[in-house]
Design a protein around this nucleic acid. Structure first.
Length: 533
DNA sequence: TGAAATGTTGGGGCG
DNA sequence: ACGCCCCAACATTTC
């Protein structure tokens, strides 16, 4: 019988293009797939439940599910099964890094290997210092004086290097490892069979492993909150999340050409909606990349557009620029992990020290109105209701609601980050933290402090027909376009005809934007002029 | 990956 | 016909 390898699943809940799983099979191991639950926001937990349901099925129901301290659980499992290897795919959150260093130490007599499964390039692969490719150097290695300023702080510079590195490593040509699901199933062990084959182990003094059924992780909420999420994401109660590869193909073959034009339009279906799949590693960015620049697809879409009387030259430019623009977003994702890896403190602290004593107002009632989508500004409320019902919000609207919370209401960006963390199915520590610091203007590569979104203008610009607002705020649906983004300015007659009673079935604005803008400007301005020690 | 305030221009109404 | 004013429309500056 061949040796046994624990493949430890975390945020790589897939069997396709899973480097740790592939490597273990290639090394001739029998596979013991293990999932140890980790804490996550409520919405992500729902998605995690259904992603696990699918993964478990893909692994022929041999996935071991448990909960608790990973070190202890792995120790027990190794004692019981005599596994001689542990393979996993790397995570980059500070807690995970330190835990993994511990585990590597603790099981140093085993074959332990880790892999990149979730980024195009890992944090240390894009640095200012050329020799900085040692994965052992972590953010905590402050003894290395070179490390301090080796990382990028501005996206444009980072991405330039990212692109260069990407071609340098020739990753574009790298083929995805495509194991058939049959071969994966063949290599996968069933724990109970395994233990039955070694009955002496069962009778030993060794600690018993508490194996759980998926339901026992209690990832689904007690209230029926998940219904809208299940519906929106095409989730099946019995088979779990919908086939993500279909979602990738659909975007890369149909929608990507229009991406630059439509990506800011929450009223249209112009974006990939792959974020929750990425957050849990149900898909890898490599899978998206492969499909995005799949030569045969390019050929198809080129010929399709050629038929619609576009010149060949334009077509090719159009193809690559729209695909590159989408790829750039995956670059932002890598950048978020780069920042988090080198400055883990950014989770709780503004990267810009001038924000240390920022006079946040933190009114609980205003925060609550924002969370419920009752601010009186339609584009903000539509976004917050979309978030609550689907576990997701269009990125343009995320920026609008974030600007409103931080700059209009003067509520600490961390309150917003917490809410997003609980309610987003794509909740991702690196992205969430970077995004909020960017919006609040307190990050290293942040929006300028004076960039304050006007919710009315943003609505009119990016939801010009008001369809997005009408969908999420039906009580406003009868308002004409002219007033759909500013009901508080509409004549009484118009409101009457549309059945809108401000302060009754739709709130008055909880703050006057002009007043709020001036207030934010003066605070941020005094901050900007403040000198730091 | 803003918006408002301020500045400039030029066509048209009008005395 | 001409200068003057008004004010969109656009451009630039400022926050």
């Amino acid at each position: 019988m061949s040796k046994l390898c624990i493949v430890w699943f975390r945020k790589d809940l897939r069997i396709i293009d899973n480097p740790a799983l592939n490597a273990a099979i290639n090394a001739g191991y029998q596979i013991l797939p293990v999932f140890i639950d980790y804490s996550a926001g409520a919405a992500l937990n729902i998605f995690k439940h259904y992603a696990l349901l699918k993964l478990s099925q893909d692994l022929d129901h041999k996935l071991i599910i448990c909960k608790g301290n990973p070190q202890e659980l792995l120790r027990t499992l190794i004692a019981q099964t005599r596994a001689s290897a542990i393979y996993w795919n790397r995570l980059y959150e500070p807690d995970s890094i330190s835990r993994n260093i511990e585990i590597k130490k603790q099981f140093s007599d085993l074959d332990i290997k880790s892999f990149n499964s979730s980024l195009l390039l890992e944090p240390w692969e894009v640095t200012k210092l050329e020799q900085q490719n040692d994965t052992q150097l972590g953010p905590y290695n402050t003894k290395n004086p070179n490390l301090k300023d080796s990382h990028y702080k501005v996206f444009t510079a980072y991405y330039k290097r990212h692109q260069a590195k990407f071609s340098e490593l020739n990753l574009k040509a790298k083929l995805l490892s495509k194991k058939t699901s049959a071969s994966i199933k063949n290599s996968t062990c069933d724990l109970s069979e395994l233990l039955a084959r070694n009955p002496q182990e069962l009778n030993s003094q060794k600690p018993e492993l508490q194996l759980l059924k998926l339901e026992e992780l209690e990832l689904l909420p007690k209230i029926q909150w998940q219904k809208g999420i299940e519906e929106f994401w095409g989730i099946s109660k019995t088979t779990g999340i919908s086939d993500p590869q279909k979602q990738i193909t659909n975007f890369c073959t149909q929608k990507v050409e229009q991406y630059p034009d439509l990506r800011n339009r929450p009223d249209l279906d112009g974006i990939s909606k792959l974020s929750p799949y990425l957050a849990l590693g149900v898909v890898s960015p490599q899978m998206i990349y492969a499909e995005l620049f799949n030569p045969s697809i390019n050929l198809q879409s080129r010929s399709k557009i050629l038929k619609s009387e576009t010149s060949l030259k334009n077509t090719i430019n159009l193809n690559t620029t729209s695909r590159d623009e989408y790829l750039r977003q995956l670059g932002w994702r890598d950048f978020a992990y780069h920042l988090l890896y080198y400055t883990p403190s950014m989770i709780n602290e503004a990267q810009n020290p001038k924000f240390k004593n920022f006079p946040w107002q933190n009114s609980p009632s205003l925060l609550s109105a924002w969370q419920k989508g009752l601010t009186g500004y339609p584009i903000v409320d539509a976004g917050m209701r979309e978030l609550w019902h689907t576990g997701w919000m269009h990125n343009r609207v995320r920026m609008i609601v974030a600007s409103f919370l931080v700059k209009d209401l003067l509520i600490d960006w961390r309150k917003g980050a917490e809410w997003f963390w609980e309610t987003l199915v794509d909740a991702d520590l690196a992205n969430n933290t970077m995004g909020w610091q960017w919006c609040a203007g307190c990050g290293v590569d942040a929006a300028p402090y004076f960039r304050i979104f006007n919710p009315v203008l943003q609505g009119e610009k990016f939801d010009p027909d008001g369809n997005y607002v009408r969908h999420w705020i039906p009580e406003l649906s009868k308002l004409p376009n002219k007033w759909i983004h500013q009901p508080f300015n509409a004549p009484a007659l118009i409101l009457n005809e549309a059945g809108v009673k401000l302060g009754d079935n739709y709130p008055q604005p909880i703050i006057d934007h002009k007043y709020a803008r001036d207030r934010a400007l003066s605070i941020y301005q005094s901050l900007a002029s403040k000198t730091q020690p």
